[in-house]
Design a binder for these strands. Structure first.
Lengths: 155, 155
DNA sequence: GAGAGATAGTTTCATATGTAACTAATTTTG
DNA sequence: CAAAATTAGTTACATATGAAACTATCTCTC
């Protein structure tokens, strides 16, 4: 008689997508405590501030490309940051549809408070790995990212 | 005169929490297409099915522990799966508060359709890495997970 | 064995998020 | 250069999510 079929077993705890998701959440949570609990910022607001600090005068669309956020998420994060006075919208002279976004002095202050905390928390995390391991992890992540999203560069 | 302070720069694209998040999303998306687009399941429903297939008669609380979902998310995923007829609730004889959850025959069929697809998609992804690299990645992820969540085992 | 807590799971409510539709400005095309 | 198609960004709506309150059951303590 035919045997009962034996599908390949799938153990969630060793399944890469699951492990990546759980790890990513655990890591993000650590960092989120710094900007969320202390300064009331969402992940998206934090990301918007980071790229705006890096590239003052950036447009919303460009923020979306650099942070992997869609335009609605960018729009909302920007609106929230303007509301609390951390971001300023300057109309672009050459294209009336877009604005040039910059951090306000208040936004810059907050940002400069968060950055060293975020960096040191990241350092604490990766200090579990040797320098060589850190480099290897980065390399493997790039390979995976390319396999997962061949159509576009993720970073 | 004092120089303008130079905070450590933070480039989002090299910041581990950001990179992990983007990578995790890209990977999850690939797999999600299999169960979401084809079968209308959410990530949580898929996770609940996976652990229930692995451990028939499991309780909602235990599902939460194994999948890192909170009890509300488990409750909702279970309710949805019961609604579409993939999961069955059996009252526990020794504790009237909990139920023993099992996949229905229909649920098992769907699950057994998804598993090989998920596994082969995962295989396709990690095939970008050599066996040695895969093992190394797993090792590094465990180290990071421990650093990020020392209080509890993530997997 | 009668509270006082603890636990399993659900419901409620407020907020977050994604999709699609929309407005306004710009670029392209014939 | 006028109409058509694109692009930047916002708004509206429907659904998803998280926190807290809630119900029912169980366990512990005296």
């Amino acid at each position: 008689m035919p045997e009962k079929s034996h599908p390949a077993p799938l153990r969630l705890s060793t399944f890469l997508p699951f492990r990546l998701s759980v790890l990513s959440n655990a890591v993000s949570q650590r960092i989120a405590e710094l900007y969320d609990r202390e300064f009331g910022l969402s992940v998206w607001q934090w990301r918007v501030m980071a790229v705006t600090a890096d590239t003052p005068g950036i447009s919303a669309t460009e923020i979306g490309q650099r942070t992997q956020m869609d335009k609605v998420a960018v729009s909302r994060a920007v609106a929230g940051l303007i509301e609390v006075g951390y971001l300023e919208r300057r109309p672009s002279t050459d294209d009336a549809r877009r604005s040039n976004l910059v951090l306000t002095p208040a936004g810059t202050r907050i940002y400069e408070l968060i950055v060293p905390l975020a960096i040191s928390e990241e350092a604490r995390l990766v200090s579990a790995l040797s320098d060589k391991e850190q480099a290897e992890l980065a390399r493997l992540m790039v390979k995976l990212a390319t396999a997962a999203s061949p159509e576009r560069d993720l970073w």
